[in-house]
């Protein structure tokens, strides 16, 4: 995939934050807030796939829902196709839904169980007032075929499908109106390995065919690497590293990326299992994130400076960016590659 350098990004987030408040206690000291997304800046070019990886609670799903404005943004700025959509109201955002869609982890939860698949797929057309009845029917069967199902499946109910097929329906619905951007939140993590591969392949084909732009959110590094051009690694609400999908995992610059990479069990044999770069302890509570670098409590390289100052995401000449005071350089020493 070639990307013209002069191209404008399809999606641009600037210092985007999402804060959840919890506890309705009368005492202010008992009220808590979580920076689910903490000043995240990113750009997604047209036709590109940006992968977002991180462990549970890192804020990747919140970020995904902010990027499609399924939830409100606490602060920062979000532009879609050159237009500021940060503060658009629900009504103003509706026409934009045609252009940005989401696919979720659990397709069953997002498909109304009492309606036939054909109805579910026709819904986007009806909502946006597109096409006559017969035309919609044609489009629905075309959609079903396109995602690898048969047109007679339109008459069935969601529960009659397997997990993989339900996810195909979810994708079909998201694609119905030919969106420009598709944000997929863990679209394959609930599926069996063999089905996972089918869905990844399908998403890749659809991207080529419709010139789609993806934001692909997952916890599985290999899956993210397979489908993404670039990858952003998140930790405690912040992006700690961004770069080319191959490079980020083969030569991680942020210690957390490396930990993540080495923790992933690989389905192949090693002459001798290399020592893993160990992380200390558990994820800190998002209610009281550590000051300075969010990773310093678990980082093997942490020095005093990390605790004092939060490192900024700095872009290097080769286009990779890392938020670390002491970035790792070169290939990592375990020799996995």
């Amino acid at each position: 995939m070639t990307m013209a350098t002069a191209q404008k990004p399809l999606l641009r987030a600037t210092k985007l934050s999402k804060i959840y408040k919890s506890g309705r206690s009368l005492l202010p000291s008992r009220r808590q807030q979580v920076h689910a997304v903490n000043e995240v800046s990113l750009e997604v070019m047209p036709g590109e796939t940006l992968g977002i990886v991180g462990e549970s609670g890192c804020g990747k799903s919140s970020l995904g829902r902010c990027l499609t404005r399924l939830q409100d943004i606490s602060s920062g700025r979000l532009e879609f196709d050159g237009r500021d959509i940060t503060d658009l109201s629900l009504r103003q955002i509706r026409p934009l839904r045609r252009e940005m869609q989401m696919v979720f982890q659990d397709p069953a939860a997002s498909l109304n169980a009492r309606r036939r698949v054909g109805d579910l797929l026709a819904e986007p057309f009806r909502i946006h007032g597109i096409g006559a009845r017969s035309e919609i029917e044609d489009r629905v069967s075309e959609l079903l075929r396109r995602v690898g199902l048969r047109s007679e499946h339109a008459l069935r109910f969601p529960h009659e499908f397997s997990g993989g097929q339900k996810q195909r329906i979810g994708i079909a619905r998201a694609l119905a109106l030919h969106p420009k951007l598709l944000v997929a939140d863990e679209p394959v993590s609930a599926l069996d390995v063999s089905i996972q591969a089918q869905i990844i392949n399908l998403l890749a084909e659809l991207r080529e065919e419709f010139g789609l732009t993806y934001v692909f959110i997952a916890h599985d590094l290999a899956v993210v690497r397979q489908i993404s051009n670039r990858v952003a690694v998140m930790y405690l609400g912040a992006i700690v590293e961004v770069g080319d999908a191959d490079e980020v995992f083969s030569t991680p610059r942020h210690p957390y990326t490396r930990v993540l990479r080495e923790a992933m069990p690989e389905p192949r044999l090693h002459a001798k299992r290399p020592e893993r770069a160990q992380v200390k302890g558990d994820l800190p509570s998002p209610f009281s994130p550590p000051p300075g670098c969010p990773f310093h409590t678990r980082c093997a390289f942490a020095k005093e400076r990390r605790e004092v100052q939060r490192p900024a995401l700095v872009k290097a000449a080769d286009g990779r960016a890392v938020a670390c005071h002491y970035p790792l350089d070169g290939p990592h020493p375990t020799g996995l590659a």
């Binding site: 390995v193 996972q196 089918q198 389905p267």
Partner: peptide, 25 residues
């Protein structure tokens, strides 16, 4: 074979398509 082919590689070149197993169990 299908299982191994379904898992995306962690490093090295990425296949254009994963050799997924068709159908469902």
């Amino acid at each position: 074979w299908g299982l191994f082919g379904s898992i995306p590689p962690f490093d090295g070149p990425r296949p254009a398509r994963l050799s997924a197993i068709p159908g469902a169990p």
